[in-house]
Design a protein around this nucleic acid. Structure first.
Lengths: 248, 248
DNA sequence: CGGTTAATTGAATGTAGTCAATGGTTGTGG
DNA sequence: CCACAACCATTGACTACATTCAATTAACCG
C-alpha cells in the first residue's frame, strides 16, 4: 500500500507560514484554496513567454520547470519546482510571463486563480508571506546563476543535488539521503547548462568518487558532508525552518 | 557645467508607479523617503552574506553588484544595480541576506530603513508595487542565468549590453546607443561568468564586427538591431513602460 | 618617480561540446 | 507475440571555446 503524501496545498501553506508569521486561520484559508487540476505532459508549454496569466500553477505531483528558450533551439531551465511549490506566484504581481513553464515528467498541476489568492492577500501578513516566498525563489535563482557561472561540472551537479535533496526533504518527498528526481539527463543538462553527454560523464565521475549513487532516477547520497563540500554548498539561501536546518 | 541628474529616489518611485498603479500622493511619499547617505568603495561588502539588515540600499550614483562568493575565491555577480535601483528591496520580506552587496566603482548609496518603507507598505497598492519590483528583479536574474548557462561569450556580452543599455536609458543615465558602464573587465567577467582575459578578447571581436565600440568605459552601440540579434535579446522581461518600449 | 591597477596580447592547456554509434527499455500496433 | 519505433543512457573520437599562466604596455596616483 502506498502511503498518502501530504496534500501539496498544505505543504505550500506551511511553507508560507514558516517564512512569515501567519495566523492559524490564514494558514487554514490558504490550505483550502480551490483550483482546477490538470495533467501536464513534458515538452508542452503550460505557460508561454509573453502570455498574460490569471492563475498560478501549484505542483501537486511531478516536476515543473521554468524555461528560457533561445533562438537556436537550446533552452535553459532557470527553476525546478517540486510538489508543494507554486511555480509562478510572482505572476500575481506581474501577470505577463517572462519565462515559459513546462513539465519535465507527467505532472499534476493545480491551477489556482489569481482572484482567489488576491482575496487572501487582503491581509497584510499574507501579502508579506507571498512576497517572502517569491524572494526565496529569487535567492534560489541567484544560486542557480552562481552555479552556471562559476562552478565546474562536478561542482555544479553536486550543488544541484544538495539543493534538491533538502527541498525534497522539506516537501516530504524523500530524505536528503535518498529521493527520486524524475528528469532525464538531457533535462538535467538544460538545468545545469551542460550537454546531456557531459552530464552523463560527470555523473559517472561522481559515482566513481562515491559522492552519489543513481539508479532508475533514484538519487542516493551516501555522505552528505562530502557532497556538500564538493558542491561548496551552504543551505542559508533556502531559508529552511529551524526543524530542517540541522546539519544542512 | 554638468547637468543635474534626476534624483535617484524619484527615479525609483516612478519605476514603481510604472509597474503597479499608485496614487499620486503615494508616489510623493516614496520620493520623499529619508535615509543615510554613504560612499561605498569597491571590494568591500556593504552587506555581507548571512547578515540581518534593517535597511535597503538605493543607488544614487555609481554601480552596485550582488555577489556570490565561492570557497576558491572566485565570485559571481548575480545582479548589477544602477542609479534609481534598490539593490535589496527583497530584504524587507527576508532580512537575512543570501548574497553580498559591493560597489564596483565608488558609489553613493542611500540607506533607507525598513521601518520607513514598511510604513508606506501599509497601503496595499504600495506592497504590490514593491512585490512587482522584486519580481522584475527576479526576471532579470532569470535572464542572467540563461545568459550564463546557454550563450556563447559573444552572445552573452551582446545580451548584457542590450540589457544595460535599456536600463541606463530608463534611468536617464545615457541612451541605449551610448552610456557609461563603470566596471573593469575583470568585473564584467565576474558578471558574465568569464575570465577577464576572455572578456577582453571577446570585446575585441565585437568591436571588429562593429557591434559595439568601447573606450574609457563609454559603451557605444552603432546598430541596435544588430546587437539585439547577436545577443538574441528580447526586452519583454524588463517590463519597460510603454514610452520606452518602442523598438526595444 | 616608483607603485598600483587595468588593458592587452601570446602560448599552452584543459574542460566541455559536437558528432556519431551502440545497446537497453518501453510501448504499440500488426 | 513479435517487429518496429521512440526514447534514453552510455561511450568513443575529435574539435573548439575558454582558462591559465605569463609578459608587456598604458594610465593614474601619491
Amino acid at each position: 500500500m502506498h502511503q498518502v503524501d501530504k496534500p501539496a496545498l498544505e505543504l505550500f501553506a506551511e511553507r508560507l507560514a514558516s517564512l512569515a508569521p501567519l495566523k492559524a486561520d490564514e494558514v487554514q484559508d490558504l490550505a483550502m484554496l480551490a483550483g482546477r487540476a490538470m495533467q501536464a505532459k513534458p515538452n508542452i508549454d503550460i505557460v508561454s513567454i509573453g502570455e498574460t496569466v490569471d492563475h498560478v500553477c501549484l505542483v501537486v505531483d511531478g516536476l515543473l520547470g521554468r524555461f528560457g528558450q533561445l533562438r537556436d533551439g537550446s533552452q535553459q531551465i532557470t527553476a525546478l519546482h517540486i510538489p508543494g511549490d507554486i511555480a509562478d506566484l510572482h505572476s500575481i504581481a506581474i501577470p505577463r510571463a517572462a519565462s515559459a513553464i513546462q513539465a519535465l515528467t507527467t505532472t499534476t498541476v493545480l491551477r489556482i486563480p489569481h482572484a482567489a489568492l488576491r482575496r487572501l492577500a487582503a491581509s497584510p501578513a499574507v501579502v508579506n508571506a507571498f512576497w517572502a516566498y517569491s524572494a526565496v525563489d529569487s535567492a534560489i535563482l541567484a544560486q542557480w546563476a552562481i552555479n552556471l557561472g562559476r562552478r565546474s561540472a562536478q561542482g555544479r551537479i553536486a550543488h544541484f543535488f544538495c539543493e534538491m535533496a533538502l527541498r525534497m526533504e522539506q516537501a516530504q518527498r524523500g530524505t536528503r539521503y535518498e529521493f527520486r528526481l524524475d528528469a532525464t539527463q538531457a533535462q538535467l543538462g538544460d538545468a545545469l547548462g551542460l550537454t546531456s553527454v557531459h552530464v552523463n560523464r560527470t555523473l559517472r565521475a561522481l559515482r566513481a568518487k562515491n559522492l552519489i549513487s543513481l539508479e532508475d532516477r533514484l538519487v542516493r547520497i551516501p555522505d552528505w558532508e562530502q557532497l556538500k563540500a564538493a558542491g561548496d554548498f551552504d543551505s542559508l539561501y533556502l531559508q529552511l525552518p529551524e526543524a530542517l536546518r540541522r546539519a544542512a
